[in-house]
């Protein structure tokens, strides 16, 4: 019965995924139009408001799906002598990561895009919004919701029906250390907040590289406002993950694993940017700090992709 409810909830998301995909593609197209058409650029803020509201509404459906998982994936109705299991799955894992990143990006973009902002920065933010809306439309969280957790949940229900205690207990252990841990509610949101702020900095950083000195200093200054806030969240998120890693990967070799490596690499590059930035008021150090900022963002993208690409304890690769 519980499996049926879960499958129904999942199927509802999958069959209605087009209701998310199509508007996201339209948003991608609209952001591109705003980027190229000067007369329509004044609507960027409205477009950001609409996009944020649309993602908020979609997020409610994701949260609802997670609540159903919490309600049905347990041993409540089963005559099994094992202490009960409840899943508290945070709504920013697996296929929901990119969605959550964009959601936070729209939130910060809304705060930053005002009438006083430079026209080129607006173009840059429109282009970034278009690219990410397109990406989220392609890799949306509804077409195949939580694919790995789905396999685990199906295996869990199979184990219950076959009284496979070993599988049930191992599911419980994974739930404790992977999904239910309080760290999952703090570590990823902090990192995605920093990613969103770094993403917001990238248009002005890129323009800073190619602008004349006075403009470059303005762009660099705008980027720095986002990066310094993002850097605090990045550092906090990474540090908070450390005690959890010790506990969750006890006995495993994780310190030099690829995902950990690239995350530290990204932090090191952003640290280099922050230090380079001390002399950004000068001509070439200012430009160099823009270059290091862009390199740091490339490192961020690589860090994000590594999770799916390179095998390791912190990856799906």
């Amino acid at each position: 019965m519980n499996l049926k409810i879960y499958e129904l909830a999942r199927e509802m998301l999958v069959s209605n995924a087009f209701l998310f995909k199509i508007p996201m593609f339209i948003l991608c197209f609209l952001f591109l139009i705003v980027a190229v058409n000067k007369n329509l650029r004044k609507f960027l803020r409205y477009l950001l408001v609409f996009s944020f509201l649309f993602l908020t509404a979609s997020f409610i459906f994701i949260i609802r799906f997670h609540l159903i998982i919490h309600q049905v994936v347990n041993l409540d109705t089963q005559p099994i002598p094992i202490e009960n299991i409840y899943l508290y799955v945070p709504p920013w894992i697996e296929s929901e990561k990119l969605f959550f990143w964009l959601f936070l990006f729209f939130f910060f973009a809304l705060l930053k895009v005002t009438n006083t902002i430079d026209e080129n920065t607006k173009i840059g933010i429109s282009i970034v919004s278009a690219i990410f809306s397109g990406l989220v439309a392609i890799f949306d969280p509804f077409s195949n919701p939580l694919p790995l957790l789905d396999l685990e949940i199906r295996e869990f229900f199979r184990a219950i029906s076959h009284f496979d205690y070993y599988q049930i207990i191992s599911f419980k252990a994974r739930a404790t250390y992977l999904y239910n841990t309080p760290y999952m509610w703090i570590h990823p949101p902090m990192l995605f907040t920093s990613y969103a702020l770094f993403l917001l900095s990238i248009p002005s950083l890129t323009m800073g590289i190619f602008s004349e000195t006075k403009k470059m200093l303005e762009y660099e200054s705008f980027s720095y406002q986002q990066i310094k806030a993002g850097y605090i969240f990045l550092t906090a998120g990474m540090l908070i993950g450390y005690p959890w890693a010790i506990e969750a990967w006890k006995g495993e070799s994780w310190w030099w694993s690829p995902k950990i490596n690239v995350s530290i690499m990204m932090w090191l590059f952003y640290s280099a940017y922050i230090h380079m930035r001390i002399y950004s008021g000068r001509k070439w150090p200012g430009r160099l700090s823009c270059v290091i900022g862009v390199v740091s963002f490339v490192a961020l993208v690589f860090t994000y992709i590594t999770t799916y690409l390179i095998p390791g304890v912190h990856s799906y690769g």
Partner: peptide, 11 residues
Amino acid sequence: GIIFLVSTFYS
């Protein structure tokens, strides 16, 4: 940072 990157590629 570059050392961490190289080690990732090696790994």
